[in-house]
């Protein structure tokens, strides 16, 4: 079961998570420790990177209209900032006493804090990106809802003209997202639903066209054409609802089920 649910987050955090785990194990195995080297330059580099992240983070918050992002990101940034202070304190303590056990604990705590805070920040950012895709999916659902008012060929042309770019954008975004996920089951679910949407779209347009022609011709075939059209609309809508559901899943959801 992957720990990080996107390849981007995994690529950023896995190497540092590995290093922190090693340090924790070494600390537990050799409680008294060896003399620590001067870590002040390395800590200074971390602090500069933290300052830059905080600046970029608040710029992102200020430029976003996503209220959840505005709510979720500041605590993560504060966590990273606090953790960097722990690292500075640890480094100062170790310079005074390279064998200091409390300094080592502070170093571990600071490293874990950086890891946890950066992880929370990346998750908040990632969730915000997912919400952008969800909005596109919902706009497709809104277009599908107006299928029932399409009753002329002119309406159909306008409908197809409006629907096509939104569906294309949705499939492109969901396809990219699917490739980003580390969770194989979620990827397969998205692939399956996306494939269904791709296959059903021409069937839907054809169904609307048959309905329009039947309606103009009159007769008993109208009801069947309407039923077929509505059935296809329902199937496409169901697949998009499934895409929306899966996009919001993280690996943790399934762990909870287990």
């Amino acid at each position: 079961m992957p720990v990080f649910h996107t390849k981007t987050i995994e690529g950023i955090l896995e190497p540092v998570a590995l290093q922190v785990s090693k340090l924790v194990i070494l600390h537990e195995e050799a409680e008294d420790g060896n003399a620590m080297p001067d870590l002040s330059y390395a800590v200074h580099v971390v602090k500069n990177a933290v300052d830059n992240l905080v600046k970029v983070g608040y710029d992102t918050i200020n430029n976003s209209d996503d209220q959840l992002l505005k709510q979720d990101m500041p605590p993560a940034l504060q966590r990273v900032e606090e953790a960097s202070l722990y690292l500075i304190q640890a480094s100062d303590m170790l310079r005074a006493d390279p064998f200091s056990a409390p300094a080592r604990k502070k170093l571990i705590e600071g490293s874990r804090g950086i890891l946890g805070g950066t992880s929370a920040l990346l998750l908040a950012f990632d969730e915000s990106e997912v919400r952008k895709i969800l909005r596109i999916c919902k706009s497709v659902l809104e277009y599908l809802a107006i299928t029932e008012v399409v009753d002329s060929m002119d309406d159909l042309v306008t409908f197809v003209k409006n629907l096509s770019p939104v569906i294309t954008r949705m499939t492109k975004e969901v396809d990219s997202r699917e490739k980003e996920l580390t969770h194989q089951v979620h990827r397969e679910m998205l692939q399956r639903s996306l494939e269904q949407v791709k296959q059903l779209t021409p069937i839907l347009i054809s169904g609307i066209k048959i309905y329009v022609i039947s309606k103009q011709a009159g007769g008993p075939a109208v009801q069947d054409a309407q039923d077929n059209r509505d059935y296809t609309v329902q199937k496409v809508s169901n697949e998009i609802h499934e895409i929306i559901r899966v996009l919001q899943l993280t690996t943790y959801d399934e762990d909870e089920w287990d």
């Binding site: 540092v16 990177a49 992240l53």
Partner: peptide, 29 residues
């Protein structure tokens, strides 16, 4: 995205810091 680049820099800097600390510890283990 700038935020991903900034996070990458922090992760790399933290990994380097922790690696230095681990190397010192490992000498004893």
């Amino acid at each position: 995205e700038q935020i991903l680049e900034a996070a990458k820099s922090i992760a790399a800097a933290t990994a380097a810091l922790v690696k230095s600390a681990s190397a010192a510890q490992r000498e004893l283990v």
